[in-house]
């Protein structure tokens, strides 16, 4: 079927079976491989993207269901020259080890800011990150990064 997706402000046409997951459309059809597939069972959060600003698991949404909504992926946040404040905070706080879970963690950070604002505590972030797994167990620096990234978003109005 023909599916039109609005991704990071641009429309993309995809000719794919109805069974195509959003994460498959992003990665396999459009080459946007920043969104990762970790568990493929709705557990790990590596595939988080934003639909109309709200974080969802792209492995558990059909591409066709995302039509008509604004999709934001990790590629849409910043550029290599000018990272989004949340991305910059992960870099500064070394909020990653192998990096596999990082795109989903950054998107989860944005979801936490959406629901709780930019003044976050480590306890709140630790609780709210329950839908994201880091198999390196690098959680301490991830939590630091999200707290700092949220505060930086306040300053930059990102």
């Amino acid at each position: 079927m023909q599916i039109t997706l609005s991704i990071n402000g641009q429309n993309h046409g995809v000719d794919a079976p109805a069974a195509t997951l959003l994460v498959e459309a992003l990665r396999d059809h459009l080459g946007l491989t920043g969104t990762h597939i970790g568990c493929d069972t709705s557990q790990c959060g590596a595939c988080h993207v934003l639909l109309d600003g709200v974080a969802v698991k792209a492995c558990t949404v059909l591409a066709a269901q995302a039509q008509g909504q604004a999709i934001t992926t990790i590629e849409g946040l910043g550029t290599q020259q000018a990272l989004h404040p949340m991305q910059q905070a992960f870099r500064d706080a070394h909020g990653l080890q192998c990096g596999f879970c990082t795109p989903g963690m950054v998107m989860a950070g944005l979801e936490i800011v959406r629901r709780h604002g930019t003044q976050l505590t480590p306890e709140l972030v630790a609780h709210e990150l329950e839908g994201n797994l880091c198999r390196c167990t690098g959680y301490m620096n991830i939590i630091k990064a999200i707290v700092a990234g949220a505060a930086a978003m306040e300053q930059s109005h990102a």
């Binding site: 974080a55 969802v56 629901r115 839908g131």
Partner: peptide
């Protein structure tokens, strides 16, 4: 579930 599950 978790926050992302509750969003769907």
């Amino acid at each position: 579930g978790d926050a992302q599950v509750r969003n769907r």
